[in-house]
Design a protein around this nucleic acid. Structure first.
Lengths: 134, 134
DNA sequence: CAGTATCCCTCATGATACTG
DNA sequence: CAGTATCATGAGGGATACTG
């Protein structure tokens, strides 16, 4: 069964490549910052500490689940700290760590490229779509 | 029905925010480069033009579907060109455009941050997981 | 060689309801 | 206020088979 064997070889290669990518730092970072809410939360915290409800308000459209989940993720990664103040009602503040702050220039780079070049991309899309329509 | 109305208001806000994000250049760029295969293909083409089969070989683990789909996406965005040479068998070469090349420094920035700081992130995770386990 | 077409399936996200 | 728990869905991605 050469076909079956070839398929297996391909799948093995795919799995090995997946494993390789999983260990790639740049890939791990991209996995983080590509998350819809990660950059929004980090950017929101650039101005200083924020409470949970502040974040929920600033980042309209985020569900409680995703906000909590993403905050936990970022806390685990050492990008922000979670400070609970025992009171009634409870108060929880989130703040960027120096590591989290160090991410801001990178986000700024991405923003720069986007603001400089995304209109070219949009133009290219228009051309592509126009030609394809004919 | 105040509950229902409140839920609707929240959903409207979420939709409006989605629309806002869809028009955000930085978000659009992140949507592109966060794609697993986009950065790999762009990086592979940094060395110069490559044929379809070259790319398939270099980027082990990519399916034909995703390779073709991603190449079309990048062509549409004006990041690379597709050059078909009529012959038997057909030959297709892909090459970065200047716009595509301009993306390379940004990818390098991301790589730099990752290689500089991802070990700190990994360390933070270890601490977090260790504390959580107790 | 360089694709296209199809099916299938998982996994991430969001809505909803409940709580210390 | 700041979450947790549960359920549903839908879109992205892979496997497979076929083609100019």
């Amino acid at each position: 069964m050469p076909t079956r064997a070839a398929a297996e070889v391909r799948q093995d290669a795919a799995r090995a490549y997946d494993a390789y990518l999983a260990s790639c730092p740049a890939r791990q970072l991209l996995d983080r910052i590509s998350d819809k809410w990660v950059t929004l939360i980090v950017s929101a915290l650039a101005d200083g500490p924020q409470r949970y409800s502040d974040l929920a308000r600033r980042i309209a459209g985020v569900s409680q689940k995703m906000l909590t989940q993403t905050l936990r993720l970022l806390e685990r990664d050492g990008l922000l700290t979670r400070q609970v103040t025992a009171a009634v009602p409870v108060r929880v503040d989130y703040e960027l760590t120096p590591l989290g702050v160090s991410l801001l220039p990178l986000i700024a780079c991405i923003k720069d490229w986007a603001e400089t070049h995304m209109d070219e991309v949009a133009a290219a899309r228009d051309v592509y779509d126009t030609v394809a329509a004919q």
